[in-house]
Design a binder for these strands. Structure first.
Lengths: 329, 329
DNA sequence: CTGAAAGCGCTTACAG
DNA sequence: CTGAAAGCGCTTACAG
């Protein structure tokens, strides 16, 4: 049977308030009392219980991360940054994984209502403005990562800019028929990246051609998978008029695309998006999103807001960086 | 101000016990009463609060996963499986990330003491038998993944066997100087895999040679990184007597090794370990660990134990499978 | 089927 | 610096 604050209090000959104070550093307790309490606590292996502390203090020292799916390179990297910061600050991490089938907004509201955490980090959760607006009434610290809404702090990367740079880098090399290896068309990153792609084309006076936007059939993880990239590239190589070069919506899709080219004995310059750790090792040119930094900074920002609810809202937008490697040589 | 069970009770004209019952499905409440309560609850957006439920019921519907580091392919895959199962069962997921610098056992005890969860999944947490033994006194459901101790349920893969098969596959092809691209020597997986490697050698009557066990310098994540593999392969290629073939302790290291070979204009058959999703796409031969299944099954097992503390302890050991791809052709 | 009441293990003004 | 006491928002026998 685990011991409670009452057991410790009795054994140490003090009140439960004192025991509580000892475990909450801050308050004043004489060194002698503190030691007495700690000795007893250690002897029986006592530790305050998270529930009870949470109920009584309305704090639980927990940050909740809400993501679409954990097993994805982008989230993995962002989470790495989140953890680095959280470890530093001594907060606990909880993860809520929204499921694909059900209503996203409902799930998000559910998380907020249950009040599991003191602060929430929403990673790649895309809602409509009026839905975000509704969430403001929960009046709880929220930081958005890879999304943007004016009433919450956010940390994101300019997707339009990134896609623009990627596409432009290909056009600058003289390629004219530049395809975009896409994914689920309705997804936010795809929509933004398509805009950047078009922008680069039009700047060069090249007409946009719908048939050059190609995606695979498998829509698991919205198509941001090796398989999605593989399928799309196969399609591309089977076109009557094969594209000259290709901008891939993510590095992981580019990995699949590379395999497809190999299997088909074809070759074409391609550039990815993300710069996952792996890309350096397979020589993939790409657009770098500072994923780890985003997670790190977003967490820091969130904790600051938790301490000061009235601080001005900050929108941090990273500039994506073009990374040249052999895949576009 | 969020509403409580009292507000709902008052507005619905019932007792708080009844409101509580409505939210706990199980108990009997007349359809009329239930509806009345639900209507009010919905109107004000009421939801029971996790803390209070936890305190009162000693349950919190949460499973805690304890891992060394999230941002790692192996854990990511295992976590994917955990999530699949958890979603199905309606449990919440919490993650505790043990930090590298501090005492592992202390951290693990800390997690258990705080009683955050109803069940714990320890992934790749390696302790000594007597330490595991000590944890049994917490008397809480624990399932081990990628580790083994007789008093807890566990799900693991036979590392000795896997390394043996990998090495043997190379020897069977006629290679004699087969190196092992290693990582932190003191880590459990490395120790086990070394045993399998040696076993395969001795079976063929080949002497074990210490100088063929090579690892990189960077020990971030115990050396299980692209960089670790890269550095090790560079060393290998610079040896006076370059090995004929190489068994890599993980796929991710193999990715680095492949790059090193390319950079050095060298080539050598290599086989990895894990079979991360990527491997198929880069043609890496490897030993498959069913990571997703392991996470899935371990979670199921844990939940079963949570429901029945007295069920017999089960040790599930998966057999690693040899996957042939082009890297060993 | 429903209510009154005790209790879960803490925190935190309020006094002293 | 320390204690008595109220309260956090629920659950759950116990009665009826």
């Amino acid at each position: 049977m685990a011991s409670t604050i009452y057991d410790i209090a009795k054994q140490a000959g003090v009140s439960i308030a004192t025991v509580s104070r000892v475990f909450n550093q801050s308050s004043s307790v004489s060194e002698r009392t503190r030691k007495k309490v700690m000795d007893v606590a250690e002897a029986v292996g006592y530790h305050p219980q998270a529930f009870a502390q949470g109920l009584a203090s309305k704090k639980n020292n927990t940050i909740m991360v809400v993501v679409p799916v954990i097993s994805n390179y982008f989230f993995m990297e962002v989470l790495g940054g989140v953890q680095d910061k959280l470890g530093e600050l001594g907060f606990d991490l909880s993860i809520f994984n929204v499921t694909a089938g059900d209503d996203l907004f409902e799930q998000v509201e559910h998380v907020l209502k249950r009040r599991w955490a003191e602060g929430y980090l929403f990673i790649s959760i895309h809602l409509e403005d009026k839905q975000w607006k509704q969430l403001t009434r929960y009046n709880v610290p929220i930081t958005l990562v890879d999304e943007h809404y004016q009433e919450f702090d956010s940390v994101s990367v300019d997707n339009v800019q990134g896609a623009y740079r990627a596409t432009k880098s290909l056009l600058d090399k003289g390629f004219r028929r530049v395809a975009m290896l896409s994914a689920l068309k309705s997804s936010k990153p795809i929509r933004d990246r398509l805009v950047g792609y078009k922008k680069a084309l039009s700047e060069k006076g090249i007409n946009f051609c719908e048939s050059l936007i190609i995606s695979g059939e498998s829509l698991y993880r919205d198509g941001f998978t090796e398989r999605g990239g593989y399928e799309a590239m196969i399609k591309m190589l089977n076109m009557d008029d094969v594209p000259d070069a290709c901008f891939c919506a993510s590095d992981i899709q580019a990995v699949g695309a590379l395999k497809a080219m190999k299997d088909m004995g074809a070759s074409m310059p391609i550039i990815g998006y993300d710069d996952i750790e792996l890309s350096e090792y397979i020589g993939l040119s790409t657009i770098r999103q500072p994923m780890r930094d985003m997670g790190f900074y977003a967490t820091q920002n969130l904790v600051e807001r938790m301490k000061n609810h009235d601080k001005a809202i900050s929108q941090t937008i990273y500039s994506p960086e073009l990374i040249h490697r052999s895949s576009t040589d």
